[in-house]
């Protein structure tokens, strides 16, 4: 991890600690978002950390962003942080110009381009109602392209995921294309990996928080005259949580390190699949240990567990990556599986 990343993460955590109360997170449920926190991040240009200096950035890399996403997941901050920053990073990677407006990103195929204009119904677009532009993937003459369109004239139907985060339906009607870049299959793979890695970072952040909340609760709450953590079956829950948290964290750190060197297809895939299992265990054990108070709206726990249940279904999911891995195993040329596994590590 770079020194810059350490400083960055500490700075952001300080901002979140100060500004992101439970109420700020709750705002998303009534259709709002943490615009004030977003203002701090954009004014301080933290969101530009991974952009090149010529684009007004700090010349960081994808792992600096992953640090930002991780901590944002840990505080459940309702802001389009992944979307805006990844949209710009992808534009930059295509040789394009990052936008100064807020953009969101959506990488499911389906947009058609005709006569230089984009037409499509795009479902589950994160934060569309709060941003001005969209970066997405389109097929032009059987070739994939990254396109950058304005949402100014788009029809936006408000929709939300399990955690009440905006996942709007966007109808593009001959939308004006601001930028358009054909991409190779390799580049497409890189972008799917970045997008998945971003979501993984956020999920690991939420897992860390659920783990922390639960351990703390077992120390505070007493029944039968002793704290919950003294009961052996509760200890078993703690051990399961700690195990999955450690696995998730190790996967995340190794995935990040691999992304510094390239596409990291294997590491991104494995991490996503691991997190799927981690989420199942972590959300179940955390709720069981918190019991009734944990299923109230009043309590913070659901701000994280609902997000985990929502995020695991979005973008390139574990089942997408399982298929990809099955294919990788089928086509691997190494003489056996162990040789294949150890060829990367």
């Amino acid at each position: 991890m770079s020194d810059m990343k350490d400083i960055l993460v500490t700075t952001i955590e300080r901002i979140y600690k100060k500004h992101v109360t439970k109420e700020v997170v709750d705002v998303v449920e009534t259709g709002g978002w943490a615009s004030a926190v977003w203002g701090i991040l954009t004014d301080s240009e933290i969101v530009n950390v991974a952009l090149a200096e010529e684009h007004g950035g700090a010349g960081g890399d994808i792992t600096d962003l992953l640090g930002l996403y991780h901590i944002t997941g840990k505080y459940a901050v309702p802001i389009p942080v992944i979307e805006a920053t990844l949209a710009n990073l992808i534009l930059q990677q295509c040789g394009g110009k990052p936008t100064a407006n807020n953009a969101t990103i959506h990488l499911q195929k389906g947009v058609q381009i005709k006569g230089g204009q984009a037409t499509a119904i795009v479902a589950n677009v994160p934060w569309a109602r709060h941003v001005e532009e969209l970066v997405t993937v389109a097929e032009i003459d059987n070739q994939l392209a990254i396109i950058h369109v304005s949402l100014q004239d788009a029809d936006i139907t408000l929709q939300q995921n399990l955690a009440s985060e905006p996942r709007d339906t966007v109808v593009l009607k001959q939308a004006q294309i601001l930028q358009q870049y054909p991409i190779t299959a390799q580049k497409w793979q890189l972008f799917t990996c970045w997008h998945t890695a971003a979501k993984n970072a956020q999920m690991v952040g939420a897992i860390d928080r659920v783990f922390e909340l639960t351990v703390r609760y077992t120390k505070e709450r007493e029944q039968f005259g002793r704290p919950l953590h003294r009961f052996q079956l509760v200890q078993q829950h703690i051990a399961h949580l700690a195990g999955e948290q450690a696995m998730a964290s190790a996967a995340f750190e190794n995935m990040s390190a691999a992304l510094l060197k390239g596409t990291a297809l294997d590491e991104v895939a494995y991490t996503t699949i691991c997190l799927d299992e981690a989420i199942r265990t972590v959300t179940a054990s955390a709720h069981q240990v918190h019991a009734a108070v944990g299923v109230t709206h009043e309590h913070r726990l659901h701000q994280y567990t609902r997000r985990l249940w929502a995020w695991r279904e979005e973008g390139f999911t574990a089942s997408y990556w399982k298929k990809e891995r099955a294919n990788a195993l089928l086509t691997a040329t190494e003489e056996d599986f162990w040789t294949y596994l150890t060829s990367t590590k």
Partner: peptide, 28 residues
Amino acid sequence: IKELKAQQNEVALQEVASLVARLWSLRN
């Protein structure tokens, strides 16, 4: 894995992918 590869059994290999992912993380 050798056998499922010989069978070209993609569906079964998707299940195996979960084991491989866990193995990868445990090794790390």
